[in-house]
Computed example of a mutant assay.
Amino acid sequence: MVSAAVEVNGTTSLPYGPEPQGILVFTSDMHFVEFLHDPRIPRFKSDERGRGTDEENRAVMAGTLALYGRYTVDGDGNFSGNTVEGSSFPNWIGDVRTTNELTMRVEGDRMIENFQRPGGARVTITFERAR
């Protein structure tokens, strides 16, 4: 289960739809990968990834996010930040995020990610452990 919400100036939106899907993986060699999407995004009529219409491509960009990179932990083994090495939003490549912008909190089988975007938007994503 995944839930994702963005808050801007007190208004909440669900950029990946009411029932988003995705995955967040942390590896033992300090890498991470995160993927979120709105499963309601319609298939491309052309059935070719590189031949989407403007409308189809806009829907994919608005309803998906993928990123990967390296993460760090502090001396106590707690998450202390990450560096984005690749992203479906190229403006984030190279970003270094510390716990000033990005926090991860574990509550039972859930991990809650809170990210404060530089422009003021606050993003909360909750991932549930896969069984």
Score class of each variant (00 low, 15 high):
residue 128 E to A: 10
residue 34 E to T: 05
residue 12 T to E: 07
residue 122 R to H: 13
residue 82 N to L: 15
residue 82 N to F: 09
residue 106 V to Y: 05
residue 74 D to F: 03
residue 93 I to S: 11
residue 67 L to I: 02
residue 37 H to P: 01
residue 5 A to Y: 01
residue 42 P to E: 09
residue 54 D to R: 10
residue 81 G to S: 07
residue 85 E to F: 09
residue 13 S to R: 03
residue 46 S to L: 11
residue 37 H to V: 11
residue 23 I to Y: 06
residue 71 Y to G: 01
residue 85 E to R: 12
residue 18 P to W: 05
residue 45 K to I: 12
residue 119 G to Y: 03
residue 42 P to M: 01
residue 94 G to I: 07
residue 20 P to V: 09
residue 44 F to M: 06
residue 20 P to E: 09
residue 50 G to T: 14
residue 109 D to L: 01
residue 70 R to M: 06
residue 63 G to L: 06
residue 108 G to E: 02
residue 104 M to I: 11
residue 87 S to R: 08
residue 6 V to I: 01
residue 58 R to P: 04
residue 108 G to L: 04
residue 3 S to V: 12
residue 37 H to D: 12
residue 130 A to L: 15
residue 56 E to R: 07
residue 85 E to P: 04
residue 47 D to H: 15
residue 54 D to Q: 12
residue 106 V to W: 04
residue 94 G to T: 11
residue 69 G to Y: 12
residue 54 D to C: 04
residue 71 Y to V: 00
residue 12 T to C: 02
residue 121 A to L: 08
residue 7 E to P: 02
residue 11 T to W: 00
residue 32 F to G: 03
residue 66 A to D: 08
residue 130 A to Y: 12
residue 72 T to L: 04
residue 67 L to C: 05
residue 80 S to F: 06
residue 121 A to S: 12
residue 127 F to H: 13
residue 112 I to P: 00
residue 115 F to C: 06
residue 35 F to T: 10
residue 23 I to R: 14
residue 26 F to T: 07
residue 72 T to W: 04
residue 87 S to D: 07
residue 22 G to Q: 06
residue 125 I to N: 05
residue 89 F to T: 12
residue 37 H to S: 08
residue 58 R to N: 14
residue 72 T to A: 06
residue 112 I to Y: 02
residue 118 P to A: 04
residue 30 M to F: 10
residue 126 T to K: 01
residue 88 S to P: 02
residue 61 M to L: 12
residue 12 T to I: 11
residue 95 D to P: 00
residue 127 F to S: 03
residue 48 E to T: 12
residue 109 D to N: 12
residue 8 V to P: 00
residue 76 D to T: 15
residue 30 M to D: 10
residue 7 E to N: 14
residue 75 G to S: 07
residue 78 N to H: 10
residue 45 K to D: 13
residue 125 I to S: 04
residue 21 Q to T: 07
residue 77 G to T: 08
residue 122 R to I: 04
residue 27 T to Q: 10
residue 47 D to W: 14
residue 74 D to W: 06
residue 91 N to M: 13
residue 125 I to C: 04
residue 9 N to W: 00
residue 129 R to P: 05
residue 51 R to L: 15
residue 80 S to R: 01
residue 72 T to S: 11
residue 79 F to G: 03
residue 85 E to C: 08
residue 82 N to K: 14
residue 127 F to N: 10
residue 57 N to H: 01
residue 76 D to M: 09
residue 79 F to I: 03
residue 38 D to F: 06
residue 24 L to N: 08
residue 103 T to Q: 02
residue 41 I to P: 10
residue 30 M to L: 08
residue 37 H to Y: 15
residue 78 N to K: 12
residue 21 Q to W: 09
residue 40 R to H: 13
residue 41 I to E: 09
residue 117 R to A: 10
residue 48 E to A: 13
residue 82 N to T: 13
residue 24 L to C: 15
residue 84 V to I: 15
residue 19 E to H: 03
residue 119 G to V: 10
residue 1 M to I: 13
residue 124 T to W: 08
residue 19 E to S: 10
residue 104 M to F: 11
residue 7 E to K: 11
residue 74 D to M: 07
residue 44 F to V: 00
residue 90 P to T: 07
residue 61 M to W: 07
